[in-house]
């Protein structure tokens, strides 16, 4: 197995500026603050986290749609963070993105042919219009859009079809890696499944690698081989898809997992729920030590608020960033009283 994309201590900090003509930096939003991960070729890496955790920024940083503050994003041997602008633009042929809002990410004034041909023109794929059109028709068929769509405009399609257009736009460039930023969250449930199946089928037939970014853990688990859980700009846990459900190690993952509703009354009635108190702290002013310690039901007196835990391997490719992961697993470290989780067992 080869690593297609590797992030090493990637950081994206947005400066907060004030002033009219001569502005000065008054602080930083630590949107992504030291993330290391690797995506294997032909696999799907799922990145989950709640809003404001920096997952979208991370996806955009890989494509350099936002500036990388520090760290490396090595794609197939090249560090994208160091590439000059024009070379970065050219390497975007191999790195594509599917967006959350199917309508918003399509220019309302372009018809489908023009939308799909734009990327090809930018990268010099296809000699002439006819050749491009043939290629576009082929891709449209692949993503399940009628052949007559070429001259139509985005507003004439339904939500699911628009997302298929977005996928087709990425596919015409024959990329190696597709970053899917919330690919289904704007769609209706029955349509979500169509798009998920399409993504899986395309991966199989075209050998694609995905970095799927989503807030819906069930969707991510369905589609991913490896899952990384983000909290406030950093990974707190990374594990193979099956392990993360069967034995979540980080307290935040446990809480997240217990909060995802399952469409089955039997399961819902017998589940253990860990309710977190409070809200996500601001990424402009993150807590010291472990980022999660302000809401953690297992917070300990020592280390948690002073020492930032590293993401470390606890066996079997399961990585977790918690000082007390082993203790929590074997029961020697229990939930502290003041932040005791509400345990519902019926």
């Amino acid at each position: 197995m080869t690593t297609l994309l590797e992030l090493r201590d990637l950081k994206v900090h947005f400066p907060v500026r004030k002033g009219i003509l001569f502005d000065r930096t008054v602080g930083h939003v630590y949107a992504v603050d030291g993330v290391s991960l690797s995506v294997e070729a032909g696999q799907t890496y799922g990145l989950v986290g709640e809003s404001g955790c920096g997952k979208t920024t991370l996806g955009r940083a890989v494509l350099r749609l936002v500036d990388i503050t520090d760290g490396a994003a090595v794609f197939d041997g090249t560090d994208l963070a160091q590439l000059p602008e024009e070379e970065m633009r050219r390497s975007r042929r191999r790195l594509q993105m599917v967006f959350q809002d199917p309508l918003g990410s399509l220019n309302p004034r372009q018809n489908i042919e023009s939308i799909l041909a734009e990327g090809m023109a930018a990268h010099g794929i296809g000699a002439d219009r006819e050749e491009r059109r043939a290629r576009i028709s082929e891709i449209l068929e692949r993503v399940g859009l009628p052949a007559g769509s070429l001259s139509r405009y985005p507003h004439e399609f339904s939500g699911g079809q628009r997302q298929r257009i977005g996928i087709a736009r990425a596919l015409v460039l024959e990329p190696d890696l597709i970053i899917c930023d919330e690919p289904v969250s704007a769609l209706d449930v029955s349509i979500q499944a169509q798009v998920i199946n399409l993504l899986e089928e395309l991966q199989e037939s075209m050998g694609l690698t995905y970095l799927v970014i989503a807030h819906d853990l069930a969707v991510v688990r369905h589609i991913s081989d490896v899952i990384g859980v983000m909290y406030l700009g950093a990974l707190v846990e990374e594990a193979p898809s099956d392990d993360i459900y069967s034995e979540p190690r980080h307290p935040y993952t446990k809480a997240l997992m217990s909060a995802v509703p399952v469409p089955d009354p039997e399961v819902e009635d017998s589940r253990e729920r860990i309710l977190l108190t409070g809200d996500l702290p601001s990424p402009a002013n993150p807590p010291t030590g472990c980022r999660f310690h302000t809401r953690c039901p297992w917070r300990q007196e020592t280390r948690c608020d002073t020492e930032r835990p590293e993401l470390r391997d606890v066996g079997g490719g399961h990585k977790v960033a918690c000082h007390w992961a082993e203790g929590i697993a074997d029961g020697t470290v229990g939930p502290t009283t003041e932040l005791a989780p509400t345990l519902l067992k019926e």
Partner: peptide, 20 residues
Amino acid sequence: SDYVLAARALGVRRRRIVMA
């Protein structure tokens, strides 16, 4: 807007993004 971001992600040149 999202489609401008999408065009950048596609690798379209900046000048063309503005004009088109």
